[in-house]
Every structure is written in structure tokens, then in C-alpha cells.
Design a protein around this nucleic acid. Structure first.
Lengths: 117, 117
DNA sequence: TCAACACATCGACGTTTGTCGAATCAGGCG
DNA sequence: CGCCTGATTCGACAAACGTCGATGTGTTGA
């Protein structure tokens, strides 16, 4: 991958959670994590997320990814949901708005589902 | 943890999918994976799943986990959802019904979210 | 055979969700 | 300034969801 960045993880790493096999989730943690899973629980949102994550540099302009079979306001709505869940960040650069994946948050989800530890 | 079982993974590993950073999801794959994420998108379901996954042997009887703050029919409803999504399997043994996690399916979700490859 | 228990299904309900078109906001440019 | 383009917000509406109490199904044991 790109060796330009030593992949410095965000300092604010999601403190959640140990692997789901190691301990039962608390009520609060289950609410927090469920909100993240919910963000990926719609096919259109998952595809948008996939398009951004697989884009070079892990970011993409809305205009690059809005061909997912729904109207443009609906795309915007879904991107907002993903942003509110913490899975994406956005940044305006001139005319366009770029969305990036939030690596630490996604890593937290993956870690929760790691059954082998 | 328990060294009784050498943790033999199921041979039938979910064929879905390469890590989300490596390629854009197809429409069909996004529908399949979104359904799995949806199963974990409710706090009560996530707690039920957590209780089962963290139980010794990766399985639990309904009677062991139904203390999650909702009625018994609702627990049953949520377990059905998790089962339909492929995340759990169930088995009746006498009076009780035992639910087990489906390791390969969960591993597939974790693999999809692995950003580091 | 019947009572008791474990769990699933049914029917109903209020709430949330995904979607759209219309309107609005924000920058770039003539 | 005024216009065009990119993107978000608004309002509405049908569909899906989470929840419950009541009822059904299956198993054990007296």
C-alpha cells in the first residue's frame, strides 16, 4: 500500500471493545457498537462505504461514488449516517466534499468480531 | 481459554469477501453482508450474541441469556433474526434449545473490515 | 393423562427507516 | 453581481422494525 504514511493511527482510538468471545458486552457498549453495525446494515450504505474504502488514499469525493442507484439526496443522507456513526469523516475542498474512512473505528468493529482470541 | 478443543475452524468458510479496502463490493455481496451487519445492529441482539459468544464452548441455552431487559417472546424473535442471518445455529437438546455462534460467518464479517491488507 | 416448564409463533401497536422531489446552502466563474 | 454546479436539508410517505401479551408447540415428569 502507500508507504507515504506510516499509518499513524488516530490518537483517539475507540476504547471499545475486547473480542466478543472474551466477555459479555455491557449495555452501554452494546448500544455504541450496535449503532456502528447499523450504519453498515443497509446495502446502499455498505456500497458507499466500500467505494470510499477501496478508493486510492481511502477517500473519495461524493461525485465519484454517487452512482449507486438512488437519488443524490439519498446518497447524501446515507453518507451523513455513516459520518454520524463515526465510520467516515468529511472535508470540503473547494467545490467538492471528500469522505474518508475512520480507520480506528472500523478496526474496533473488526476487533470485536475476532473470534480467535 | 479452554484447551479441550484445538479450535478447528469450520471447513466451510464463507466465500465472502475480500477486505473492503481491496475492492468495491458488488451489489449482491453488499446485500448479503448488509443483512449480517443488520443482525448485529440492535443493542439487544448484540448483547444476546455477546452472551452466547462469550459462554464457555461458544454456546448457550436460551434460559441462560434471556435476561436482557425485554420479554421472552422478544428474545425469541431476536434469536430468530440472528439465526436467519447465519450468525447463530440452534439445536434442541431435551427441554432446552442451545444456540451456537457460526464461526466462519462471523470471521467473514471481520475479514471484510480488516483495513490492513 | 395431565400439569408444568421452555421456547416459538401470532397479531397488534407505535416508532424508525429509506426514499423521493423540492428547496436551500456553498463555491467557482463569467 | 448573477448563474451554474456540487452537496445538504426539508417534508412527506410507505415499508420495515422492535416490542408486547396471548396463544401454540414440544418435552419432562408425576
Amino acid at each position: 500500500m502507500s508507504n507515504l504514511e506510516p499509518t499513524v493511527l488516530e490518537p483517539e482510538v475507540a476504547p471499545c471493545c475486547p473480542p466478543i468471545t472474551s466477555a459479555e458486552l455491557s449495555v452501554e457498549d452494546s448500544v455504541r457498537m450496535a449503532a456502528m453495525f447499523k450504519a453498515l446494515s443497509d446495502p446502499v450504505r455498505l456500497r458507499l462505504f466500500s467505494k470510499i474504502a477501496s478508493h486510492p488514499g481511502g477517500e473519495a469525493c461524493v461525485c465519484d461514488i454517487q452512482d449507486v442507484g438512488v437519488s443524490q439526496p439519498t446518497v447524501s443522507h446515507h453518507l451523513k449516517k455513516l459520518r454520524e456513526a463515526g465510520l467516515l469523516t468529511s472535508e470540503r475542498r473547494g467545490t467538492w466534499v471528500y469522505y474518508q474512512v475512520a480507520p480506528s473505528v472500523v478496526a474496533g468493529m473488526a476487533a470485536l468480531l475476532d473470534l480467535n482470541r
